[in-house]
């Protein structure tokens, strides 16, 4: 049995690809055979974030159109065992992502024994985003503490509840998870930023995790290493927690409370 997990948001730039790379790596670290697929045809970036951009030979669309078989297109990740990347194509048009084609590829991945298939959705609510969520069993809604991101997340939830196969066929609905990214406890504390509880109240879906705004994310993407592998950084820890919760473990939220700097820190500076 395999589980298809779609990472989506509606809005761009909120951290879908960062999250897809980290969550997929997290599943693989736990020993699950995992594939992560880039659905952003024309603007592929997952390969860069995963650090495998120079090893792309065939892509998702090549497989759909029968120009290559799946094993030729899947790239074995060099950081983590059990993890494979299926890159999006860079040049062809978006309609190449046919529903039958996507379904066939997902079936083939299941057939090859993949336990988790992570679908990295493009931004927007166009064809690519719809294809990425059509076959979802579970969905991670990536949201920034910012008005347009929250609104777009709500839109994408509506689409998930109407256009996914599970919805259309009247099966058990797609399981939804909220992941708040780029969170700043200090700004939330000072009333400058929506708190994660505000966001959860607005969107009314269970909270999977909160990842802090962090310089480590840029360092990670600079190097082509998933953020979850940036050892001992809060953002990596937060992603590890999120993966644990996804797998049913209970973990307290971390990195969400603002701690006032002590007197000494205030006098002598520091962050």
């Amino acid at each position: 049995m395999s589980t298809i997990v779609t990472v989506t948001s509606g809005k761009g730039g909120v951290g879908k690809t960062t999250t897809s790379a980290s969550i997929a790596t997290g599943f693989a670290l736990r020993g699950f055979k995992t594939a992560v697929i880039d659905f952003d045809v024309g603007l592929r970036n997952l390969d860069l974030i995963m650090g495998c951009e120079r090893r792309v030979v065939y892509d998702f669309v090549n497989v759909i159109q029968g120009d290559a078989n799946l094993s030729q297109a899947l790239i074995k990740d060099k950081h983590t065992e059990n993890l494979y990347v299926l890159p999006a194509s860079q040049t062809r048009d978006k309609d190449a992502l046919t529903e039958e084609g996507v379904e066939a590829v997902l079936k083939e991945l299941q057939h090859q024994g993949f336990e988790y298939i992570v679908c990295d959705s493009p931004a927007g609510i166009e064809h690519g985003a719809i294809m990425a969520l059509t076959f979802a069993d579970e969905a991670i809604i990536v949201t920034n503490p910012e008005v347009s991101s929250v609104r777009d997340s709500d839109r994408i939830l509506g689409i998930l509840q109407s256009k996914s196969r599970r919805a259309i066929e009247g099966r058990e609905p797609v399981k939804e998870h909220l992941l708040v990214t780029r969170y700043s406890p200090k700004r939330a504390h000072e009333g400058e930023m929506l708190t994660y509880t505000d966001i959860q109240e607005l969107l009314r879906i269970p909270l999977l995790g909160v990842t802090p705004e962090s310089e480590a994310v840029l360092h990670a993407s600079n190097q082509g290493v998933p953020a979850i592998l940036q050892k001992d950084t809060p953002v990596a820890e937060a992603y590890l927690d999120a993966v644990a919760r996804f797998l049913g473990e209970t973990r307290p939220l971390r990195f969400v409370e603002y701690e006032k700097p002590g007197l000494i820190k205030r006098l002598f500076g520091g962050k």
Partner: peptide, 14 residues
């Protein structure tokens, strides 16, 4: 706070 303004606006529009 601007965050509470944001929350109210979002509640209405959503």
């Amino acid at each position: 706070s601007t965050a509470s303004v944001a929350k109210e606006r979002l509640q209405l529009i959503i």
